[in-house]
């Protein structure tokens, strides 16, 4: 029974982290970007204030489609579900399928709903944005698939817990970490890969017809999705080398480590964002295709035992 309490505690900690941390992470990024440009920058909770403002505004309705109304909520639910599939300490809040492919698809559902939302309205700009999002997915998914292949072969399982427990250090795994960081960065849609939404332009991407509360829900979903991808990467990067987590004390330490590393990663991301300009779709397609062939070589290395 005592264990259940611990599990509940960690799950709650996880839920609190995944619900409240993501907008603060964005706040960190905005602050760092501002400092790099010699500005003061907004307070850390600015993203929360933005969301609060959006939530208090009514939305302009540009179509009667039910999908238009429901897509933001379903996207939010998908990204939260994806984040719940990850380990916090050594506890996974809900065990509905503790494996890589399910995580991969649940994260993908956020993009699917984003695209469907953009395609329900009669607007060339949101259609274009959705098509751009899909083209990015088309090039980044094979890359992620092949890296999962390396990890699954390395650890002999697709179960995230078993992967964490059984990974062993090989040159191919090191390369996999590098390429995985790149792939997840692209999937998160940070600059220079923010091609779908194209925030700085007058008319943006799939969300151009969204406003008010529905837009707020979508933004929140995207922040949580980015958090989940980063948390996943940090967990896969760090947990295998910490040994078995037998005691609650150690689990707390691990959770703290995950938390701090997530915080620490954001300034790096912000620095990359601040020093890059958005790429064109065809440039990203080209880059990702090259990365895919690099991935094929990495997979071959893994099968040769390197």
């Amino acid at each position: 029974m005592e264990f259940d309490v611990v599990k509940l505690g960690f799950s709650l900690a996880g839920i609190i982290i995944l619900l409240f941390l993501p907008p603060y992470l964005d706040g960190i990024a905005r602050r760092v970007k501002a400092r790099l440009q010699y500005r003061r920058g907004p307070p850390l909770s600015q993203t929360w204030y933005d969301l609060q403002k959006l939530f208090s505004l009514p939305s302009v309705r540009s179509t009667r489609s039910a999908l238009f109304t429901w897509a933001p909520y379903l996207a939010l639910a998908s990204s939260i579900t994806a984040a719940l599939l990850l380990p916090y300490g050594n506890i996974v809040p809900i065990n509905i399928g503790f494996n890589l492919i399910v995580f991969f698809y649940v994260i993908l559902m956020v993009s699917v709903l984003l695209m469907l939302a953009g395609l329900t309205v009669q607007s060339a700009f949101s259609h274009l944005g959705s098509a751009r999002e899909m083209q990015i997915i088309l090039t980044v998914e094979p890359l992620i698939a092949i890296l999962y292949g390396v990890m699954a072969y390395n650890a002999g399982s697709l179960n995230i817990a078993r992967i964490i427990a059984h990974l062993h250090l090989t040159p191919s795994l090191v390369l996999t970490y590098g390429v995985l960081a790149y792939a997840l960065y692209v999937e998160s849609g940070f600059v220079p890969f923010d091609i779908a939404e194209a925030e700085q332009e007058v008319i943006g991407g799939p969300l151009s017809e969204y406003s008010g509360r529905l837009l707020g829900v979508f933004y929140y979903a995207i922040h949580i999705k980015r958090f989940a991808l980063l948390w996943f990467f940090i967990s896969v990067l760090v947990l295998p080398w910490l040994g078995t987590i037998a005691t609650s004390i150690k689990a707390v330490e691990v959770l703290a480590l995950q938390f701090l590393l997530t915080l620490a990663a954001y300034p790096i991301i912000a620095a990359l964002e601040a020093t890059n300009a958005r790429l064109r779709v065809d440039q990203v397609v080209k880059m990702n295709t090259r990365m895919f062939f690099a991935g094929v070589i990495i997979l071959a290395m893994a099968f040769m035992g390197w």
Partner: peptide
């Protein structure tokens, strides 16, 4: 909450 309706 929906405010006004508008064409895209």
């Amino acid at each position: 909450e929906f405010g006004k309706e508008a064409k895209p």
